[in-house]
């Protein structure tokens, strides 16, 4: 389906480790996936699975002592040239030109990601002036226009307000306005609706979808909420302990999941349509501490279909189970 298109962003065997005194945390340990223009890629997983570090690696904003130790991140720029992001210095001119103009980022917590001492407008205008090189006056007009597009009422007035004067939903809209202000071709949204109520969440998801239709940009949507993934994504990447355990089109992931972790995850959510008050199937145990990851397949201690002697010693590699779906599990012969 995607074979005729060239991916906008292609991540190959990405490994981002954090070197700490207590040991090395392998936050991302061999992630491989592609993001296609105009499509939404959903990245799903529980806390500590490396979703956010993957996003930070792409933008090269991984905090110390974290470092990309291996892998490639290739971005197909607007001019048609391919840029290898891992080769760039995190403070270089090239990557700073890519942030904002090519790739926009929406954070989870809109309260902490805005500066409390600058107005929302100033922060949007700053981004526009940095990247587009236009006058302050034009930048202000563009900022107001962007705020209007994301559905903020009375943008001429709101632009001079501070982040704390806005409600959670408006703040997240303003955050999206900052990310969209320079017309990026890829929007990375890291848990954009986690801190919001369901009704506001529906508004924000609606907004993201509309913006995607208007601008034809790609979205990489990072979340732990499977409902949001089902609602938004075209393709899905399921991560567990820094690895991609399964990926494929959204319908295949939800209707014929292959990896035992994906299956267990889907079974364990109480669905709004399921029978109430019956015991939910659970995943036994909890996510291992990052300092003592299991050897072999990261999921084997909690896996109901674990093959003793195989899963606890060797590491599975991704195997294509259909044209578009692949899974890293020994249950599927290569």
């Amino acid at each position: 389906m995607h074979s005729e298109h060239k991916p906008l962003l292609s991540v190959r065997n990405l490994k981002t480790y954090f070197f700490q005194d207590e040991g090395t945390v392998k936050a991302v340990d061999g992630a491989t996936f592609d993001v296609y223009p105009g499509k939404t890629l959903g990245v799903v997983g529980e806390s500590g699975c490396g979703k956010s570090v993957t996003a930070q690696s792409i933008l090269r904003i991984v905090d110390q002592p974290g470092r990309i130790v291996e892998g490639e991140i290739v971005l197909c720029c607007a001019k048609g040239t391919d840029v290898e992001l891992t080769k760039l210095h995190p403070n270089s001119k090239e990557i700073r030109a890519i942030r904002g103009t090519e790739i926009g980022l929406v954070f989870q917590e809109p309260m902490t990601s805005f500066s409390p001492v600058h107005t929302v407008g100033n922060q949007i205008i700053e981004a526009i002036r940095l990247h587009c090189g236009i006058s302050e006056r034009e930048a202000r007009a563009k900022a107001i226009e962007t705020l209007r597009q994301v559905g903020i009422p009375k943008p001429e007035r709101r632009i001079d307000e501070y982040a704390f004067e806005l409600s959670g939903g408006l703040r997240q809209r303003a955050m999206i306005a900052v990310a969209l202000s320079c017309d990026p071709r890829l929007l990375i949204a890291d848990e954009p609706t986690t801190a919001l109520d369901v009704t506001t969440q529906a508004q924000i998801l609606d907004l993201l979808r509309r913006m995607q239709e208007q601008r034809g940009m790609a979205i990489m949507l990072i979340t732990h909420n499977l409902g949001v993934i089902a609602e938004m994504a075209d393709d899905v990447v399921v991560m567990y302990l820094g690895r991609v355990v399964e990926q494929g089109p959204v319908d295949a992931i939800f209707h014929s999941p292959k990896h035992p972790y994906t299956k267990a995850l889907l079974r364990s959510i109480p669905s709004i349509e399921s029978t109430p008050r019956v015991e939910l199937p659970t995943i036994s145990g909890s996510i291992p501490h990052p300092y003592n990851r299991p050897s072999g397949c990261p999921f084997f201690p909690r896996c109901p279909e674990c093959i003793p002697g195989t899963c606890d010693t060797a590491e599975p590699t991704p195997i294509a189970v259909s044209e578009e779906q692949s899974v890293s599990c020994f249950l599927y012969p290569s």
Binding site: V198, T199, Q201, A202, L205, N225, L226, G227, V228, I229, A230, E231, A233, V250, D251, F254, H255, L266, I269, S271, I272, E273
Partner: peptide
């Protein structure tokens, strides 16, 4: 407004 965990029910 609750997102349902099934892409066929968008």
């Amino acid at each position: 407004s609750v997102p349902k965990p099934d892409p066929r029910l968008r």
